[in-house]
């Protein structure tokens, strides 16, 4: 069994503040952590390895500092870690990022085809939840988002049953392998790493892949060049003014609706017609 997990190092947004003047994140002095959903994806992969044998490979794209997050994955039981780092990868949006990760996974598949690929459901810094699905589409494999449990996994029959969270409840899906999951934290509780794993990880050096070697990436599809997304404007919305409370028991439903529409500044015509039909005098 070969599981590939894609992770991201993010600023600890529980510590982050917004610069009131520029509207951007103040990253200075904010500790970097592994994206909280991603470590659960690693744990789920490690549990599959414990059951079926095989290997867990972790990949990330980021600055050299992101090696810290990979080492944390080695602590949790991953076997191999690859850091995709190059100035040419910088400034990537979700489109360029999904290209780089998909291309790297294809290279890994050539060595040992992955049975399952795992992502966290989203990164807490951007919250787009687009990169995992983007990679699934590029690899042309089934995608299951918001996965909360792997009910069964059969690397021989090449099928799995996965539970995913939907608004109304839980969807139970059977899929063929390989499959790509983006996971919620419930997929697997993170266990405390044993001391021998900590020692292995402290000595571990992630493999570094650049834009050219050992895999060549298409220069037009990576970094800023490969990123069509434009951020028009980032701003903090003004706090909403307090609403008005209209007690229905005091004035009846129609009057209450009329008052509500008035407060919201809805069209005069609506207001007067509601008022007329309700026989309410509009001040």
């Amino acid at each position: 069994m070969h599981a590939i997990v894609a992770i991201k190092q993010v600023p600890d947004t529980s510590n982050v503040r917004i610069d009131p003047e520029t509207g951007t994140l103040i990253r200075e002095g904010v500790p970097a952590i592994i994206n909280p959903y991603d470590i659960h994806a690693v744990e789920a992969a490690v549990q599959l390895k414990e059951q079926f044998g095989g290997r867990v490979t972790v990949i990330t794209m980021g600055p050299p500092k992101a090696a810290e997050a990979l080492i944390e994955c080695i602590e949790q039981g991953a076997d191999r870690a690859i850091l995709l780092t190059d100035r040419k990868f910088g400034g990537a949006d979700t489109l360029a990022t999904s290209y780089v990760l998909a291309h790297a996974i294809e290279a890994l598949n050539a060595e040992w085809p992955a049975d399952i690929i795992l992502f966290g459901k989203q990164a807490i810094d951007g919250d787009t939840a687009q990169v995992g699905p983007g990679v699934a589409v590029r690899l042309q494999i089934p995608l299951i988002t918001y996965a909360i449990a792997i009910e069964s996994f059969d690397p021989v029959a090449r099928t799995a049953v996965v539970h995913r969270r939907i608004e109304q409840g839980v969807e139970v899906l059977q899929t063929r392998l390989p499959v790509l999951l983006t996971v919620e934290k419930e997929i697997a509780p993170v266990r405390r790493a044993p001391l021998p794993r900590m020692i292995t990880a402290a000595r571990y050096q992630p493999e570094v892949w650049t834009a050219e070697t050992p895999v060549a990436f298409d220069p037009r599809q990576i970094g800023l060049k490969g990123s069509p997304t434009v951020v028009g404007k980032a701003y903090t919305p003004a706090p909403r003014a307090g609403g008005a409370i209209v007690t229905v028991a005091d004035c009846g439903v129609e009057a209450a609706v009329a008052r509500a529409l008035e407060v919201m500044g809805i069209l005069d015509t609506v207001r007067s017609s509601v008022a007329a039909s309700a026989g309410v005098e509009v001040a």
Binding site: R192, A193, P194, L195, P196, M198
Partner: peptide, 9 residues
């Protein structure tokens, strides 16, 4: 001994 599994050194 440490607070980790297999934590003796």
């Amino acid at each position: 001994d440490t607070d980790r599994p297999d934590g003796q050194v």
